[in-house]
């Protein structure tokens, strides 16, 4: 009889071991999403509050490894369209210490404060940053957008 208890105890011990292993595996498994990712808002106030900028892919979706065009829409604080702005674009991947793999440029003004930016390419998945230096009659300001893919 005593031996049965011993086996039962061994069984319980093994069960506990299994639970422990599962717990370790579960707790150390890499998370599928970034814990606290960067702010990926597509519409933002510029750094000194001169403009409201929004930055969206022209085709709606972002595809890795393809040349893409995006639209940058610029409004003043009061909501007026910003026309004839000069826009300089820079950026890169902050976690990999490198700049953009292409040099995107403004290629067209589409009216109503909308500028087409061609030549963007996200060659890797991860956290990208795009900086715009904007200057127009309303003054010069900068804005940074994060894109995570």
């Amino acid at each position: 009889m005593a031996s049965i208890w011993r086996y039962l105890l061994a069984g319980l011990g093994l069960a506990a071991l299994l639970v422990a292993i599962l717990a370790v595996v579960f707790l150390t498994a890499p998370r599928s999403s970034l814990p606290a990712g960067p702010d990926v808002a597509r519409t933002k106030k510029t750094d000194n509050g001169l403009y409201v900028a929004s930055f969206v892919p022209e085709r709606g979706v972002v595809r890795q490894g393809e040349l893409e065009s995006w639209l940058l829409t610029l409004k003043t604080k009061t909501g007026a369209s910003v026309e004839r702005a000069a826009i300089a674009i820079s950026g890169g991947m902050p976690q990999h210490n490198h700049g953009l793999p292409t040099s995107p440029q403004v290629t067209d003004y589409l009216g109503e404060g909308r500028y087409r930016i061609e030549g963007l390419k996200f060659t890797m998945s991860g956290w990208w940053q795009l900086r715009f230096a904007i200057s127009s009659g309303a003054g010069s300001d900068t804005v940074l957008f994060n894109v995570v893919l």
Partner: peptide
């Protein structure tokens, strides 16, 4: 007694299979 042995063998098997099978997160 026999049943107990079978139970133990099963648990050992579960543990072993659990280790051998590739275990990837959704991101991986």
């Amino acid at each position: 007694m026999k049943r107990l042995f079978r139970f133990l063998a099963l648990m050992v098997a579960v543990v072993l299979v659990g280790c051998g099978k590739p275990d990837f997160s959704d991101a991986e």
